[in-house]
Nucleic acid binder design. Sequence first.
DNA 1: ACACAGCAACTTGGCAACAAGTTACGATAG
DNA 2: CTATCGTAACTTGTTGCCAAGTTGCTGTGT
Lengths: 238, 238
Amino acid sequence: MENKEMQIIDDIMNRMIQKELQPGEKLPSENKLADKYRVPRITVRNALLKLEDRGHIYSVQGKGRYLKEESIQVQLPLTGSTSFTEKMESMGYDYCTKNIDFTLVPYNSKIYSHLQASESDIVYRIGRIRYINKEPIAIHYSYVKEVTFPTIQKDGPNINSMFAYYRKHGINEFTSKQTLLSVTFPTLEEQKLLACKSMVPLMVVETDSVDKETDILLEYTKIIYRSDRFKYDITIND
Amino acid sequence: MENKEMQIIDDIMNRMIQKELQPGEKLPSENKLADKYRVPRITVRNALLKLEDRGHIYSVQGKGRYLKEESIQVQLPLTGSTSFTEKMESMGYDYCTKNIDFTLVPYNSKIYSHLQASESDIVYRIGRIRYINKEPIAIHYSYVKEVTFPTIQKDGPNINSMFAYYRKHGINEFTSKQTLLSVTFPTLEEQKLLACKSMVPLMVVETDSVDKETDILLEYTKIIYRSDRFKYDITIND
DNA sequence: ACACAGCAACTTGGCAACAAGTTACGATAG
DNA sequence: CTATCGTAACTTGTTGCCAAGTTGCTGTGT
């Protein structure tokens, strides 16, 4: 029989789902598991390293391996036109956000075409990290043309909520033309920002935001979520 | 500086995105890369093994490592009430589907509660695999109560399209109460069915299907997509 | 000139021995 | 009795060496 490693991963994952293994619990040592599954130690070790990369367990040299403490899984409405902050607050989460950058974006065909911007347009990126229970759970980038909001350079660094900023400019209802969703793995930088391991999948949601009244394109948005922190609600309703 | 391994992964991934590395191309050997990045061979090796697990490269002992051939990425509308088959055909893909199982489902609190079924109800699972260009891209499970369609046991094994089956029963318009989306890794069985490596993330879409006219619950659906084959369109429109 | 065997130099794959860190416990000294 | 130190037995982490597979060149015989 091939692929003992994957069988071990399946077995341990099942035990975690069935609650046979509890959060915080210590796993048997590599040697004990190797005896149990009748495989070389290295096979068990590789399986455990993968589980660690996925963020399910952690190890302490000389002590052993432990299941991570269970962390929240948030049911997040991906659709709908209310702001992220409002969604979170209406669900009663300990939620906060932190601005991480406000920079001029060098010309980039993908972003510029999304914004329907010409090469001579000036585009800024507003980046922030969203936290639930003090844990980072998403990176949120807003790309805005200077033409659309001429005072953006001055306002930018102090914007806490783009929605609030738009309301201040008399825009109250938003819609979007297209929302795309894909799955990636974190770069080294994203791992640092989101405090996650290299094999935690990220969900990337890209959309445009349009003033419902005037149909003017406001921004191009890219949100990068830790996929292990959410069950996404994509119900279409109302 | 820590985490050389991740820096190597980032670098190779960037080169792939920038098309500096072409599909099918042979990568430098572990030793050459170790020299280039000034790290021990084992570090390069671990980075390459992760890229292999993610499905980006493959290796041949004695020969070397190669970039996988580029495969299609389909833009898939996740929302909307047309059937999967219709979506695919309207987009002109070489699409087909294969029934893989029709079985009685032993009592399971999660599935039964989704179906609003009591413990004495009989529930069947219809499983099929969906292919694009002969490549498996999704596993589709439909859970149906016998009460809803009394002849399901007889019909089941020959059902090619659930939507067609419902239409035969006079149901023409469908809707759903809630659609949830999450990300997981494949079990060993799912790896075999979807012909993918252990670290290819899967997108799981769970929904109920309701007859729009009578509001009767028809089925509970669970679709498991290979996340590397799609960009999902979750635009809410019309 | 050509065919072929054999060898050398490369590739990736696997593993065993060793290193490093933690804990538990018992001997020993005060 | 108590405190402390040392050691042995465990844990996970690292690495260097050799096995296995492929390629290509070179020498040899025809």
